[in-house]
């Protein structure tokens, strides 16, 4: 019966060194997943509590960040994801691939028509566009864009098939492009070619 105090202190030390430094990354993703600060902080807090209880299940030397994201994503899926699937405002498959290209392309060589548009779009507008994505797409988009996880890592974190990760990411991108475009048209930054 080794001294429980020592075991606990050692576990705590390891956890603080390996897991806690990922708190800001988890919070960043939690904010985009839950769409509000309170839920995001609760989600991260809960993820760390679970991770600590499960610390003996973590394989030393493996990817701690991915492991923490898996725990957090799982809590999000079970407890925070909107229970009723939001009906999609638009049918993603009706959006053309490379949607913005179709709208912005001038046919002129060496032009960068998007730069002028990007200059007018604020951080908050992008955040809002991401938040408007349906939960399932948003999760994959956030793990890829914000956290730079590979397709394989996302598949493991969100417990999805690799093909599902790729298709959700692809559709998420199309929706994002359309969303940002509509925002720009509404504000008069660009004109809709179709009209």
């Amino acid at each position: 019966m080794a001294d429980q105090k020592l075991i606990t202190a050692e576990k705590r030390k390891q956890f603080e060194a390996e897991a806690l430094p990922h708190m800001d990354a988890l919070l960043r993703t939690a904010l985009r997943m839950t769409k509000n600060e309170r839920d995001a902080e609760d989600l991260v807090q809960e993820a760390f509590v679970k991770a600590y209880r499960f610390w003996d299940k973590f394989e030393p030397g493996s990817n701690c960040r991915a492991w923490l994201f898996k725990i957090m994503t799982n809590i999000f899926i079970n407890n925070y994801r909107s229970k009723s699937r939001s009906p999609m405002a638009v049918n993603v498959d009706e959006i053309d691939d490379n949607f913005l290209y179709g709208q912005l392309s001038t046919g002129e060589k060496s032009s960068t028509p998007e730069q002028e548009l990007f200059a007018k779009i604020f951080d908050d507008d992008v955040k809002k566009a991401i938040e408007n994505l349906p939960d399932d797409f948003r999760m994959v988009v956030v793990l890829s864009f914000l956290e730079g996880f590979s397709y394989q890592e996302i598949a493991e974190i969100a417990d999805l098939q690799l093909g599902t990760v790729k298709s959700r990411l692809h559709r998420g991108r199309k929706l994002l492009q359309k969303e940002l475009f509509e925002y720009a048209v509404k504000n008069g930054y660009i004109k809709d070619k179709a009209q």
Partner: peptide, 24 residues
């Protein structure tokens, strides 16, 4: 990527950290 790189404010981070530490 550039537009999504930032995290919550450091106030949030500090209060969250202390909540987590007290849970631990």
């Amino acid at each position: 990527d550039a537009k999504t790189a930032n995290v919550g404010s450091s106030d949030n981070l500090e209060s969250l950290r202390s909540k987590i530490v007290s849970d631990l």
